[in-house]
Amino acid sequence: MLDKNGIAKRIAKEVQDGYYVNLGIGIPTLVANYVRDDIEVEFQSENGVLGMGPFPFEGEEDADIINAGKQTITTLPGASFFDSAMSFSMIRGQHVDLTILGAMEVAENGDIANWKIPGKMVKGMGGAMDLVASAENIIVAMMHTNRAGESKLLKKCSLPLTGVGCVKKVVTNLAVMEITNQGFKLLERAPGVSVEEIKNATEGTLIIEGDIPEMQI
């Protein structure tokens, strides 16, 4: 089974040379730490920066340079700043190659829910609805089950949706799955996790074809 860093490490393998990538808050943010250093990638943050670098050294934080999670950041050579409308032009206009975000629930048809739990939590969707409505390549990073042990990979989302039919791939602590017309197609198992365990933790339709290889991370 993977921890959050393990999930981030596996997703980092999906990042290719020349990609512009938008990382959501939480596990997705960790992906930046594991991208191969022999490829060129630029990270976009929807509050208005392209070419995000690592966190600053202590004493070098700048209140005017933050990421979408409101964390202090730095920029790399070639970086640029821009306003919110232009930032979402990059996103809606499909200039960003890969979007990685977290989710509370994903359905077997690619629906995603991650912004509201009625009566409990309403923080808002931020840029998530714009991202999922437009991105061609969306990978969800999340735990396979919630704290109560219930599956987060469902036939149908129970929470208010963020977007419909948009998720392409899901990487969890247990597995890598692709969304197909028939449901979640199991591609890889996490180290030490059996197909049976993944099946038991998945409420939605899980398609298992042939031998399922273990993830290489």
Partner: peptide
């Protein structure tokens, strides 16, 4: 004041 909400740094 320019407050910082999530002061995040890395170690040297």
């Amino acid at each position: 004041e320019k407050r910082i909400e999530q002061r995040t740094v890395r170690q040297r």
